Simulated assay, not measured.
Amino acid sequence: MKSIKRKVDELIKKYKTNDPYQIAKLKNIEIQHADLGNTLGFYFHDSRIKFININNNLPAEMQRFVCAHELGHAILHPRSNTPFLKKNTFFSIDKIEVEANTFAVELLLLDEAIYEYRDSNLSMYEACEMHGTPRELSHLKKI
């Protein structure tokens, strides 16, 4: 399997954006927002239709991250119906959850942004937060 970073780079190049909503739309993945209680979001497919479900009670920045994470499942694990993404999933050692988190971090936190901050006093945690990525996942960014 290609590296996740390479897959993300190819997607950004092909679609000329790193916006997970735009990429999902261009890939014909339906995005639905609903009150999901304690669940952040989830991905599933039915026949050939793919769906990303996002909790509409989350702040917009977290909804964007959840969209990126679930888009990762749609691209990396297209035949899987993923379990619900909950906040503790950020710390999951489950392979597909780590891969989806890595996908989301690579999609939202571009290398150019990291290079832009290299001569500043910003930490990787702060750079992640500035780009809508939970700081707990900063270790997943490959430079």
Rank of each mutant, 00 (worst) to 15 (best):
91 F>V: 04
95 K>A: 12
96 I>A: 08
87 K>D: 04
96 I>Y: 14
55 N>G: 05
48 R>H: 15
48 R>I: 09
62 M>S: 06
70 E>P: 01
57 N>A: 09
74 A>Q: 06
59 P>Y: 13
100 A>E: 02
59 P>G: 10
104 A>M: 06
86 K>M: 08
80 S>R: 13
72 G>F: 11
102 T>C: 10
104 A>H: 08
99 E>T: 04
48 R>M: 12
66 V>C: 06
57 N>H: 13
72 G>I: 01
113 A>P: 00
84 F>G: 03
49 I>G: 04
98 V>W: 07
78 P>T: 06
78 P>S: 12
104 A>I: 05
45 H>S: 11
97 E>Q: 13
50 K>I: 02
106 E>G: 01
83 P>T: 12
92 S>Q: 10
63 Q>R: 15
62 M>G: 04
64 R>T: 03
59 P>A: 14
53 N>L: 09
90 F>C: 06
41 G>I: 00
99 E>P: 02
74 A>I: 02
103 F>H: 01
60 A>P: 09
114 I>M: 11
87 K>V: 08
48 R>F: 15
66 V>S: 01
105 V>W: 04
92 S>F: 05
107 L>T: 01
109 L>G: 02
47 S>I: 08
77 H>Q: 06
42 F>S: 02
61 E>T: 13
45 H>W: 05
113 A>E: 05
39 T>L: 07
114 I>N: 05
89 T>Q: 10
64 R>D: 02
97 E>G: 06
59 P>R: 13
56 N>Y: 10
112 E>L: 09
92 S>I: 02
96 I>D: 11
60 A>R: 14
40 L>K: 03
89 T>A: 15
50 K>N: 08
96 I>E: 11
74 A>V: 01
115 Y>L: 12
110 L>H: 05
47 S>W: 13
95 K>Y: 09
81 N>G: 10
81 N>C: 14
57 N>V: 05
39 T>F: 06
76 L>Y: 09
112 E>G: 07
92 S>T: 02
95 K>S: 12
116 E>S: 10
50 K>M: 11
56 N>P: 03
111 D>C: 05
72 G>V: 03
53 N>F: 09
109 L>H: 02
107 L>R: 00
55 N>W: 04
111 D>G: 06
111 D>I: 11
77 H>T: 01
117 Y>F: 14
60 A>F: 15
110 L>E: 07
58 L>S: 04
114 I>T: 04
84 F>S: 06
78 P>K: 13
62 M>I: 07
99 E>S: 07
47 S>Q: 15
102 T>Q: 13
89 T>L: 06
88 N>V: 11
92 S>E: 02
77 H>R: 13
110 L>G: 00
109 L>E: 00
114 I>Y: 06
54 I>V: 15
40 L>Y: 04
57 N>K: 14
49 I>F: 12
49 I>S: 14
59 P>C: 12
52 I>V: 07
52 I>T: 02
61 E>D: 15
